[in-house]
């Protein structure tokens, strides 16, 4: 992260509107290769909308999204996923009718080659590819995230924290170059939060995957992120290292009046002490 390396993801002048409502207004930021970048901001600031623009679910009104230097604006969502843009969702989007294992395997879809005819016959190419996937999912992902005890359970039966972890597993199966996590620890208790923080750092260190996350938990952000982008009313009001950002008067003003101010205060006291 010395600034000379090209950022893995660049957002330039992104604007998004629903009818007359401006959701994003000229948003620009860059996600450095190998970093953990966090987007923070009060509720309704447009954080998840940025994710949806990057995934291709929303079509922005203006602006460009560059992934590894390439403008991915014209690409439809599946193509972006195949490029290595993996994500999790704020309101967990696991497939209820499948087991944990199948949910994770689904993440690999875009990288597999089995055709309809292969699939109907199964023996041969489809089987080879499926077995390879199974081995990799088991040995790299399930072991890593410590979810081997639930692999054959239907996702509907899992606790909230475990579901978030399965979502992370599915995103990892997507062979990500950048992993977008939408509130990875929302609603988790302290222990689950710490587990998730450990997994995120391990993904960054061991897998070499760049991480972009939206999160409200300031403690987590101060602990693991390298770079923070602050969003308010659809505009970037500050960006920089976590400590710089939390000292920025604009940021403090943006958080006043929203419930998160207490979190920031605590963080300040932590810094001072």
């Amino acid at each position: 992260m010395d600034g000379t390396e090209r950022p893995v993801l660049e957002v330039n002048g992104l604007s998004l509107a629903f009818g007359g409502l401006k959701v994003l207004n000229d948003v620009s930021f860059a996600v450095p290769q190998g970093s953990v970048t966090a987007i923070i901001g009060p509720n309704g600031a447009g954080k998840t909308s940025i994710f949806n623009c990057i995934s291709g679910f929303y079509r922005p009104k203006a602006g460009h999204i560059l992934f590894e230097g390439e403008d991915i604006g014209p690409f439809h969502p599946p193509r972006r996923a195949a490029l290595g843009l993996a994500r999790t969702f704020q309101n967990i989007a696991l497939f209820r009718g499948m087991t944990v294992l199948d949910n994770i395997k689904l993440g690999r879809h875009a990288h597999m080659k089995t055709s309809l005819l292969d699939a109907l016959c199964y023996f041969g190419r489809a089987r080879r590819e499926e077995m390879e996937l199974r081995r990799e999912v088991e040995e790299k992902i399930i072991d890593f995230l410590e979810i081997d005890h639930i692999r054959n359970k239907p996702v509907a039966s899992l606790s909230y924290g475990l579901r978030k972890r399965v979502e992370l597993a599915r995103a990892l199966a997507m062979k990500p170059k950048i992993l977008m996590l939408d509130e990875p620890v929302a609603g988790m208790n302290r222990e689950e939060t710490e587990d998730m923080a450990r997994f995120i750092l391990d993904v960054k260190e061991e897998w070499g995957v760049t991480i972009l996350m939206v999160e409200h938990d300031m403690g987590l952000i101060m602990d693991i992120s390298d770079h923070v982008v602050v969003l308010n009313f659809g505009q970037v009001i500050a960006a920089g290292k976590p400590a710089e950002v939390t000292a920025n008067p604009d940021v403090i003003r943006a958080y006043l009046g929203s419930g998160d101010v207490e979190a920031l205060r605590r963080e300040f006291r932590g810094e001072a002490a």
Binding site: H109, A119, A126, E130
Partner: peptide, 9 residues
Amino acid sequence: NLFRTRIGR
């Protein structure tokens, strides 16, 4: 067979 592969998923 189909539902053992990526297409079925």
